[in-house]
C-alpha cells in the first residue's frame, strides 16, 4: 500500500481548475502561453475528454498557481481542487484501447448498426482505421466494413 502511494514523485502537484464549460481547450492554450512567457514551473496541462468544466495543471512549484490563473478569462473564482496523480494519469490515457487484429480472428461488434453480432476478420486497414468482417450470424456471405474501435476480440471458448 505504501509503495503504491509513493510510486509517483510527491513534489508534483495536480490541481483541477474550474473553468466555464466548453472553454477548456482555449483556457489550456492560454495557460501554456503564459507559462512560457512568465517562466512558470508548469510541467503539463490536461484537458480530459470526459470531464467538462475543468482544466488540470501539473505544477512543480504550487506557488505558481496564482500567477498562472490570475486574470485569465473564463476561469471561475472557485478554489482549485488538489487531485491525486493516479486519478489524473487515468484521465490522460486514452479510454478506448484499440485491439490488435489479425485475419481469421473472431470479433464482437460493440457499436454501430451491427452491435452485438459476431464476425470473422477478413482484412485490416490500419491506415484507415477500418476492418472488414464476415458476419457469422448472417444467412449469406456478407462482408461489412466497420471502424476498428467498434470491434473487440471475442472471448475464446
Amino acid at each position: 500500500m505504501n509503495e503504491e502511494q509513493h510510486q509517483y514523485d510527491i513534489k508534483t502537484r495536480f490541481y483541477a481548475i474550474p473553468v466555464t464549460g466548453s472553454t477548456e481547450l482555449k483556457v489550456a492554450m492560454v495557460f501554456a502561453e503564459r507559462t512560457q512567457v512568465m517562466g512558470l514551473d508548469v510541467r503539463s496541462i490536461v484537458v480530459p475528454a470526459g470531464m467538462k468544466g475543468y482544466v488540470i495543471v501539473e505544477l512543480g512549484n504550487p506557488g505558481d498557481l496564482y500567477d498562472l490563473i490570475r486574470g485569465v478569462r473564463n476561469v471561475k473564482r472557485r478554489r482549485p481542487l488538489l487531485m491525486k496523480p493516479e486519478e489524473v494519469v487515468k484521465l490522460a490515457r486514452p479510454v478506448v484501447e484499440i485491439p490488435e487484429l489479425k485475419r481469421d480472428q473472431i470479433v464482437e461488434i460493440i457499436g454501430g448498426p451491427f452491435k452485438g453480432m459476431r464476425g470473422r476478420v477478413v482484412e485490416v486497414y490500419e491506415s484507415r482505421g477500418e476492418v472488414d468482417l464476415v458476419l457469422l450470424e448472417s444467412e449469406f456471405h456478407m462482408v461489412i466494413t466497420v471502424p476498428i474501435e467498434q470491434v473487440k476480440l471475442a472471448e475464446s471458448e
Binding site: D9, V42, R43, S44, V47, P85, V89, A92
Partner: peptide
C-alpha cells in the same frame, strides 16, 4: 479527436512519462 495534453516540461512531467 477529444481531450488535450500540453507537455511543457517533458523531462520532469509525470504525465509525459505515463503517456
Amino acid at each position: 479527436w477529444e481531450g488535450m495534453i500540453v507537455i511543457l516540461d517533458p523531462e520532469n512531467s509525470l504525465i509525459a512519462k505515463e503517456t
